[in-house]
């Protein structure tokens, strides 16, 4: 039986020589920033969970914020709308960005220009682009209605942002336009990592373009796809800026999503005071929902890995 190894004594000199101390010192700025801008605000939130807090004065309200949350019809509808928005956005944006990435890596003439054009929405302010879309969607004199009428697709103007049946589609169109260029770049980065030799072998074996895509590209892209999907899911669940500009959650709360509702509670309206304590409770619940969705996705992704 071998003798257990004696615990090594900490030596500052040795740690310095190993670079441990240097690494720790270099980590200080990042840790400090994380503590100040992320951990502290998160802990601060817990302070007001049981208070009616308007930004100036806080009044103890016991468990009221929690019971209110359970019965809050607008909040739970907003949770449903968030799932609907995220699902529809992802269903369109992921395949679209993958197809565009596949086309962009083909080195077709002029693809560089298109790459810039498609990526541009990512770097434009969400508020500005949503404002421009509000003009495009305008029911009375919007460009979209004019084009659709000119091409004979519709014979009456559609109230894109004011009709409960179409408003969600309008905000999803803006979300797809604003996000697909970003995911396209991610996919292009993944595609560029697949060896050319594999494609050449497939060509020699007589595989068609579609077969190559489904049998080679997709499986080899799967590690990148997993990351992109996770980013897309969490991103879609947290979206609210463009909706705030386009519909403010209307008409009749049809496009109200979780984080927009929380935002409105925190800042109040012309006739309502800020409800920061209640918004803190909803933020916590919303964070839990996004966390659970992400965890479920990671679990499914892991199972798929095992199968594949």
């Amino acid at each position: 039986m071998s003798k257990p190894k004696a615990k090594e004594k900490f030596s500052f000199k040795k740690s310095l020589a190993n670079g441990d101390v240097t690494a720790m010192v270099m980590l200080i700025p990042a840790v400090l920033m994380l503590a100040v801008v992320s951990i502290y605000p998160f802990l601060w939130m817990f302070r007001y969970l049981m208070y009616d807090y308007n930004g100036m004065t806080s009044y103890f309200s016991g468990t009221y914020n929690f019971t209110r949350m359970l019965e809050d019809k607008i909040f739970w509808e907003s949770v449903g709308h968030t799932f609907e928005y995220a699902a529809l956005k992802l269903v369109f944006i992921i395949p679209l960005s993958l197809i565009m990435a596949e086309l962009m890596v083909q080195k077709i003439k002029g693809s560089g220009i298109f790459r810039v054009i498609y990526f541009m929405p990512t770097i434009i302010s969400t508020a500005i682009s949503a404002l421009v879309f509000s003009f495009i969607f305008a029911a009375y004199n919007g460009v979209l209605n004019a084009v659709l009428r000119a091409t004979g697709i519709i014979d009456q103007n559609v109230n894109w942002l004011g009709d409960k049946n179409v408003a969600m589609w309008a905000v999803i169109i803006v979300a797809i336009w604003g996000g697909f260029g970003n995911y396209m770049i991610y996919f292009m980065s993944g595609l560029s990592g697949i060896s050319k030799d594999v494609y050449e072998s497939a060509m020699v074996d007589g595989a068609s373009g579609l077969t190559t895509f489904f049998r080679i590209t997709l499986p080899m892209l799967s590690p990148m796809l997993k990351v992109i999907l996770m980013l897309a899911i969490t991103g879609a669940f947290k979206d609210y800026e463009s909706i705030m500009v386009l519909t403010q959650g209307g008409p009749d709360d049809r496009t109200q999503v979780m984080f927009l509702y929380i935002y409105q509670l925190i800042f109040g309206t012309a006739t309502t005071t800020p409800q920061i304590g209640y918004a803190c409770v909803l933020s916590l619940v919303a964070a839990l929902i996004v966390g659970i969705v992400t965890a479920v996705y990671l679990l499914i992704a892991k199972k798929l890995d095992d199968v594949v």
Partner: peptide, 10 residues
């Protein structure tokens, strides 16, 4: 039509 979705300046 749609004026209920447009800003006051519109």
């Amino acid at each position: 039509p749609g004026s209920e979705t447009q800003g006051v300046d519109n």
